[in-house]
Design a protein around this nucleic acid. Structure first.
Lengths: 144, 144
DNA sequence: CTCTTAATAGATAGGCAAGTCTATTGAAAC
DNA sequence: GTTTCAATAGACTTGCCTATCTATTAAGAG
């Protein structure tokens, strides 16, 4: 419904990492299995998470990825942005170059309400919330 | 940000029609200009609006499209659905076939909050709201 | 009737996000 | 040091949503 496939993938991966906090690094094969993302494609997304400082990677034997930021300090919006999302670049519903309160497109006020609630969600949900609310990572295999 | 291009186009077109209620039919060239949608592509979308009963089309001289439902009875969700959107078919963030309250994916509760606010918006905003809140159609040309 | 305007239909093409493949680099174990 | 495991890099391919093109059908004007 919202966002693109890559955003979904990034959220899945970081969710797995937050659940694995404290344990050994999760290697990319495992991560690809849990998240059901093509492994090579996931690697690219993880690269972005590493560059943004949200994950660390460890090469070689026993290597993999681990979260490198306090979950309560990582918001959903941060992950989306790191994965390439940019709220400012989102086109106006009407396709207008300039569309703001001064020169609103015919759908501006209505659309703004939707954007506001999306922003509210993405900025006020942290990975600490996700860690607390999500099912256990161990249960993942069982469920699928 | 949300939904696909086609959904945006459908909302633009119906917004123009609701603003033109009472006047002569808006022909597809005019509609394409106002909405900035490729005219042949817009035709296909309008076909769906006609089939859904939200617009009427008039062929020949002086023909075009006009709204055929009371604005207060048409919700944003209706237009989205007619344009091809299906909430039930929206994949789970985690890509699970079955993902509900019984077998929630690790992001289920968090994602649900976003879906709820989207639904709330799409189901509770009518084209009467849009008509009242939007800038006048005459101003459109001026603004762009 | 016929002329003009405009919607409809379906086949075809483009563009870009998503996914794949191959090779390389880096780190740990022994 | 050498072997093995695993991340990184980047070129290449795929697939699907958008968009375009061509031809047809329908309706009103005169």
């Amino acid at each position: 419904m919202f966002l693109n496939q890559t955003s979904h993938y990034a959220l899945r991966a970081m969710t797995c990492l937050v659940k694995a906090t404290g344990s050994a690094p999760v290697n990319s094969k495992e991560l690809a299995d849990f998240t059901d993302v093509p492994s090579h494609y996931l690697s690219k997304i993880m690269r972005k998470m590493v560059e943004a400082g949200y994950a660390r990677s460890q090469k070689g034997h026993g290597g993999g990825f681990m979260m490198s930021i306090e979950p309560r300090k990582l918001r959903i919006m941060d992950v989306l942005v790191a994965a390439g999302f940019d709220m400012e670049e989102q086109p106006c519903v009407f396709g207008w170059e300039k569309c703001d309160n001064n020169k609103p497109c015919p759908l501006h006020p209505v659309w703004k309400r939707l954007k506001d609630c999306f922003n509210d969600w993405a900025l006020n949900t942290t990975f600490e919330d996700i860690r607390k609310e999500s099912t256990l990572i161990e249960e993942v295999k069982f469920y699928r």
